[in-house]
Computed example of a mutant assay.
Amino acid sequence: MERTDRIFPDKYIDLHLHLDGAVTSDIAKRLADMQGIALPADGEALEKLLSVGDDCKDLNEFLDCFELPLKLLQTTEALNECAYLVAEKMREQGVIYAEIRFAPQLHCEKGLTQRNAVDAVIRGLSRSTIKTGLILCCMRGEGIEEKNLETAELAEEYLGKGVNALDLAGAEGLFPTENFAELFAKIRKSGVPFTIHAGEADGAESVRKALEFGASRIGHGVRIKEDPELVSLIAKRGIPLEMCPNSNRLTRAVEDMKDYPFMDYLACGIKVTINTDDPAIESTDIAEEFRYMESRFGLTAEQQRQVLLNSADAAFADDDVKKWLKEQIAPGVNEK
């Protein structure tokens, strides 16, 4: 990945990061050691199990990288430690606020309940000095309605007590957003804010459905450009897009990155944000994402500042946290 010598911001916000997609080789070794699990590989071979390269063929190859992390994240101790290590790694990289998401239903293979999993991650994040919010993911799929309802109920119970919001993740192309109308009707009544992965593997209509359901943010949203009226609507309503450049590049959400619409969205007033998604799988971090956007698309220092202010505005956090974030990004901005 091309790098430049210019000076980038030293403080970042990451609103879209999956816990199991942030398990680097050093974290994997730590989790394996503490559980007495033999890793299937070491060195470069382990890296290949946990990440993809520029030659990644498709989303399926990308998704294969979640297999090992999920095997390592089936105990409360492992989830606690992983959440802490991921948060600390982000702090070291200059992140001042992160919203970390995970699907508790994916961590119940060895007897944990979803509640056990949520408690463990909250405890792990609380050990770090970085400010964080936790987003619980419901999953796309068949026959998991009860599991998703349980996740939604836990989000309502823990809202403001470690959990900030809900999400819908998974195979968008196979399980369309419109299939989850009943789930989000119940979530809307609960008052829990939510984002939805949409407009990544499926088209603009997926985003329209997410907005109809009441999503206050959109995960990715790359393909809204297929519907100019939707682009205008999102700009007018101030709906933030959680864009993840290198993830979109590697999963082929955009076949040719010269067509990546980020700069067009920014120019028309959409609240675009830059995030990592699955940093271990992509071998990236938030600073690298900003470097990529500068070197590939000419994102200026002022535009980077605006993107970070967008992130502060979009955060599932209270007003005091948002004001603090804005002051860290652009001192004096709250006085204007």
Rank of each mutant, 00 (worst) to 15 (best):
Met1Ser: 14
Met1Gly: 13
Glu2Met: 10
Glu2Trp: 05
Arg6Phe: 14
Ile7Trp: 01
Asp14Ser: 10
Leu17Met: 15
Leu17Ile: 15
Ala22Asp: 03
Asp26Trp: 12
Ile27Thr: 09
Leu31Tyr: 07
Gln35Trp: 06
Gly36Gln: 12
Ala38Trp: 00
Leu50Glu: 08
Cys56Met: 06
Phe62Gln: 04
Phe66Arg: 08
Thr75Phe: 01
Glu77Leu: 12
Ala87Asp: 04
Lys89Gln: 15
Ala103Cys: 12
Thr113Arg: 00
Val118Gln: 10
Thr132Trp: 11
Ile135Lys: 03
Cys138Lys: 10
Met139Cys: 08
Met139Ala: 10
Glu142Met: 09
Gly143Tyr: 07
Glu145Lys: 13
Glu146Ile: 08
Asn148Thr: 08
Ala152Pro: 03
Glu156Pro: 01
Gly160Val: 13
Lys161Trp: 05
Asp167Phe: 04
Gly170Pro: 08
Gly173Asp: 14
Pro176Phe: 11
Glu178Ser: 12
Glu182Val: 13
Phe184Thr: 04
Lys186Asn: 01
Lys186Phe: 02
Arg188Thr: 14
Arg188Val: 00
Ser206Gln: 06
Arg208Asn: 12
Val222Thr: 15
Lys225His: 15
Ile234Phe: 02
Ala235Leu: 04
Ala235Asp: 07
Leu241Met: 02
Met243Thr: 14
Asn248Glu: 12
Arg252Gln: 14
Val254Leu: 07
Asp259Glu: 15
Leu266Val: 07
Pro279Gln: 11
Glu282Ile: 15
Ala287Pro: 03
Glu289Pro: 05
Glu294Met: 02
Leu299Lys: 09
Gln304Arg: 14
Gln306Ile: 10
Val307Gln: 05
Leu308Ala: 09
Leu309Asp: 07
Ala314Tyr: 02
Trp324Gly: 02
Leu325Lys: 00
Gln328Ser: 08
Gly332Pro: 03
Lys336Tyr: 13
